[in-house]
């Protein structure tokens, strides 16, 4: 490291929630770690540094390191964010990291979003309900208008990181709330011409206070989505459509 870099380097403190629910002796506590920030360092890199050089027992998840897998979501200073998309330069000198609320805790910053997402998917039947029970794999697929395909793709960008659910005030009070991720899925299948379900069918899935009518429009899901999905518009659209069913 040359002298210039040394002068601009910055020491940061990360207060990390440590707790292992598998260990009966473990008590939740905040543990402080100090490390030197490097240029372009993300929170994900910082956590790896800590695990490699300071504390090999630190638990957190990652796979892609590029904001695609959604594994490294955590609460950074009280707000849900992806560690791999969070620059240390944007954080204050001292930050607190906690696991995403709402999801089953595996340990430290690692949570089991997959279990919840699977439950949500089964509950909302977030798969294509095609016309034929047995698709003919030999047949050429029906054409789809490019704008429809684009609209589906836009909603399919969801990485199921859980940030929207962790940010949701309604979900804090109602554990059975579908959450923005679920609404996004329904909105995605609703515009898919290959799906045979109509609004009456979707009403059965989200037409109650655990569904779209429970949403209090706090819009933290929209504001905290790391993929900038148009959740506000989609939820309002579904609310209007489901209200028309009634």
């Amino acid at each position: 490291m040359n002298a210039e870099n040394f002068q601009t380097s910055r020491c940061i403190t990360l207060n990390i929630l440590r707790y292992n629910p598998q260990d009966k002796a473990s008590e939740p506590r905040l543990q402080s770690y100090a490390l030197e920030a490097a240029d372009g360092m993300t929170l994900f890199i910082a956590l790896n540094e800590l695990r490699e050089h300071q504390d090999p027992t630190l638990q957190f998840d990652f796979v892609c390191r590029a904001g695609i897998c959604g594994s490294c979501a955590m609460m950074v200073n009280g707000r849900p964010r992806l560690a791999c998309r969070t620059l240390i330069a944007d954080l204050p000198d001292e930050s607190t990291l906690t696991p995403l609320p709402f999801f089953a805790l595996i340990g430290d910053l690692s949570v089991n979003t997959g279990k919840w997402m699977r439950g949500m998917s089964e509950r909302l039947q977030t798969w294509l309900h095609a016309k034929e029970a047995e698709p003919d794999l030999e047949r050429i697929e029906e054409r789809m208008a490019p704008e429809t395909a684009e609209a589906i793709y836009e909603l399919d960008r969801c990485i199921e990181c859980g940030c929207c659910v962790a940010a949701c005030g309604t979900a804090q009070m109602r554990p059975d709330f579908v959450g923005a991720v679920g609404f996004g899925k329904i909105a995605r299948f609703r515009i898919d011409p290959r799906d045979t379900r109509d609004d009456d069918d979707y009403f059965e899935l989200i037409g109650d206070d655990a569904g779209v009518f429970g949403c209090m429009s706090l819009l933290a899901c929209h504001d905290m989505c790391p993929k900038a999905l148009p959740l506000k518009t989609q939820i309002a659209f579904l609310r209007r459509k489901m209200a028309l069913v009634a």
């Binding site: 609460m75 009280g78 707000r79 940010a167 005030g169 429009s217 706090l218 819009l219 933290a220 504001d223 905290m224």
Partner: peptide
């Protein structure tokens, strides 16, 4: 309190 999110 933790979120410091205006709409919430």
């Amino acid at each position: 309190k933790a979120m410091r999110h205006e709409d919430s």
